[in-house]
């Protein structure tokens, strides 16, 4: 490891030259580790609480490792018919997966057309789409709620999923990617007599796998974590996704911190596992797309 870093340093002179040992570097590591601890501690605290029996919450001393380790909070939560968190988990998974799949289809089709095809009104339509990127989402809250209600989709997963498909970010993102691809392969396909739909499906789309992966990660995370919109649309407890479910959980048991933290852990752990597995990829996705929300 040491030799590798040394060669890198020699190859690419950096503003901060390295030496075998320096107090400066030790200090830097201490600082970085302190920040890392501040970031990790709340998550560990959540896990620790979720495995504690109720008797340990308010002890005068804090035990990071529960003195009596228990699955009680999870069991109570999973067996409580009025707070069906297992079902919420399934709902979240279903809503996020369907949202992601639909966004991939709709946005890659549109993005491809805006990148590669000429048609009347293209500039105007695309400009119009881009304008809405700058409009705050709050403006759409009431009218979209009324539209969903008018379509009879209140308390229905379609009502949670469909408004997301109006999003412009994915279209823009896919368009940028397709526009960056070289034309050669598609032209070769046309010469061989392929239609545009075939060219899109068999040439362009396979080449777009990295962009599709990025878009699906971002979409899935945003959908899994979405709080306000499902809170408005889903009414029956059995229908909830996890984030609005957590609010119901908090409202139902103001002092059941163990169960609350178990609920938070059940919501957080899948995305954290996903994050650990795909860490580098997720970070790069966010860096390239550079978009929150």
């Amino acid at each position: 490891m040491a030799t590798r870093t040394k060669t890198i340093t020699e190859d690419m002179p950096q503003p901060n030259q390295k030496r075998p040992f320096s107090w400066q570097r030790l200090f830097l590591y201490l600082l970085l580790t302190l920040i890392a601890l501040l970031i990790i501690v709340p998550m560990l605290w959540m896990l620790s609480t979720s495995f504690k029996p109720k008797s340990e919450f308010f002890l005068p001393d804090i035990y990071w490792i529960p003195r009596t380790f228990t699955w009680d909070n999870y069991q109570k939560l999973l067996n409580n018919p009025s707070l069906p968190i297992g079902r919420w988990f399934f709902n979240s998974l279903m809503v996020s997966s369907v949202t992601t799949l639909l966004i991939l289809i709709v946005d890659s089709l549109a993005g491809y057309a805006y990148a590669r095809m000429e048609f009347r009104g293209k500039k105007i339509i695309f400009g119009f789409l881009l304008m809405t990127l700058f409009l705050p989402g709050v403006m759409f809250l009431i009218p979209n709620f009324l539209t969903i209600s008018g379509l009879g989709l209140l308390n229905n997963y379609a009502g949670v999923i469909l408004p997301g498909l109006a999003g412009v970010f994915g279209v823009f993102f896919m368009r940028q990617f397709f526009a960056s691809l070289p034309h050669d392969l598609e032209e070769a396909a046309y010469i061989d007599g392929a239609t545009r739909i075939q060219t899109f499906l068999y040439i362009a789309l396979p080449l777009a796998k990295p962009a599709l992966a990025t878009l699906s990660i971002i979409t899935f995370l945003a959908s899994w974590n979405d709080f306000l919109w499902p809170l408005l649309i889903l009414k029956d407890r059995i229908m909830l996704t996890l984030p609005p479910g957590l609010r119901t959980l908090q409202g139902a048991y103001t002092s059941e911190y163990g169960q609350m933290m178990a609920g938070a852990a059940i919501t957080a752990i899948p995305v954290l596992i996903l994050y650990v597995l795909l860490q580098r990829y997720i970070v790069e996705s966010v860096q390239t797309s550079g978009l929150k929300e």
Binding site: P42, M43, L221, P243, L246, V283
Partner: peptide
């Protein structure tokens, strides 16, 4: 590794973050 840790909270739902804040 540090970069990964620093970014990690961002993948959590605002509901998880709110609940966590409530308890802390």
């Amino acid at each position: 590794l540090y970069r990964a840790i620093y970014f990690a909270p961002w993948v959590l739902s605002s509901a998880v973050v709110g609940l966590l804040g409530f308890w802390i």
